[in-house]
Design a protein around this nucleic acid. Structure first.
Lengths: 231, 231
DNA sequence: CGAATCATTGAACGACCTCAAGTTTTGTGG
DNA sequence: CCACAAAACTTGAGGTCGTTCAATGATTCG
């Protein structure tokens, strides 16, 4: 077996689906994980309406998921960092209702649904984990709804930065300095804004000294100021 | 056993969790369904941060779910009609992350989680149904994100009416005439608008003859016009 | 019947968008 | 490695849609 598929040695195991599984069951889980060739920037992991045969976990890199609305415009639904699962939206009809694209060279673990389902029946705690992760997805969508509904552009921008900071921190990276792997346009679309507005807001935060931004590199100088903006 | 708990005789069974279960398994499922006293208008089904011991299905009436954001303001997350499940957002940490309140006198079926989990292990097709319904919830949240991000107030309003029409139709009710069970304020909040804007938009649609609205009674006179607005 | 809640309507303001031009960075082929 | 084109990003000016504030009307309920 390929070294890379060993969950036991994966630094992300505590954030991932098999979190909390006893060693013997973790070993069972490892056997269903498939490797996939790394994806290059702008390469699709899956496309809307594709038949869904697997779920995917980000191992390295990052992804953007989005939906084509009826008029053909894209709507970004979310960004995925290491340890996060993608593909749940296909559970209803067996086909993906969104597309997922690599924002940089990225690796994923593939979890074939047929095997995953069988294993869930054998391992109740894996079953619970599945539901927990699904609940997390729903909660995160609710937070996004919250953000989009009644927040000013500035609040949206600050929240976006704080959430990224939080997620990178959970991954063991710096919570004050990181690189945005997505375009301004992607952020704007995700937040229900225009890229011009995003550009201006980042410039303003930069000017106020709250962040230092250079292209895609962000340094948060005053995290509390961001929190004040969000309230 | 109370008659009301018999899923076999429930007109909603095709929309509900046990959809597609063979008769013997449906009978098993029925044994875990608990009755609950009907809820009156403005009565909470559950509150944010409550420990989640059960999921709930709307049997009659309707509900509004919402989240208190940090500043204490409410954000309406969704409206629930008969056949729809509530409570999934609690899967992550075992506590509800939203509150649910009856919009009118309403009945629910209660599905105790402990028993439901056990049964899912025994009945694989129930397990699949759970995931399917969860996928539906996620897809519906994604549609809401889509709606909130880049749609004009008019598009939001038209979409809202069309979705209600569609859902009432699926329940066997008229798709052209129904009563709104929620306040203008609730609709506004749900759509990321103000109640004044909702009022004006409904008045405008009424003026154009596309709908006829009288307080909470809506008649859709020209469903195609609504679809044109949505595109 | 009176108070409270819900809904409607008007006028003015402002946040964000649109349009447009310019700058910086990235990518490609010679 | 350079030249050039394309893409990404920034910045400015003006316009618009939806909000805010305010007043009035309709309905519900004790």
């Amino acid at each position: 077996m390929d070294y890379e598929t060993l969950c036991q040695d994966c630094r992300l195991v505590e954030l991932c689906l098999p979190y909390g599984l006893p060693k013997t069951e973790l070993e069972q889980f490892e056997t269903i994980v498939k490797n996939k060739a790394p994806l290059l920037t702008d390469q699709y992991l899956y496309q809307q309406d594709d038949k869904c045969r697997s779920l995917f976990v980000v191992k390295t890199g990052s992804f953007r998921s989005f939906i084509y609305s009826e008029d053909g415009a894209e709507q970004t639904i979310g960004f995925y960092l290491p340890g996060e699962l993608m593909g749940f939206d296909a559970f209803q009809h067996g086909r993906f209702t969104s597309s997922s694209i690599a924002l940089e060279t990225s690796k994923v673990c593939e979890l074939p649904l047929s095997k995953l389902n069988d294993l869930c029946r054998l391992i109740p705690s894996l079953q619970s984990q599945m539901l927990r992760v699904l609940g997390k997805e729903i909660e995160s969508d609710h937070n996004q709804i919250l953000l989009l509904s009644h927040r000013s552009a500035k609040e949206k921008m600050a929240t976006f930065l704080l959430r990224l900071s939080h997620r990178y921190n959970a991954l063991g990276f710096s919570k004050t300095e990181f690189n945005l792997t997505m375009k301004r346009q992607d952020i704007a679309n995700f937040l229900g804004l225009t890229n011009e507005t995003v550009s201006r807001l980042l410039a303003e935060l930069n000017h106020q000294g709250i962040i230092t931004i250079n292209r895609r590199n962000v340094k948060i100088n005053n995290i509390d100021s961001l929190k004040v903006i969000v309230e």
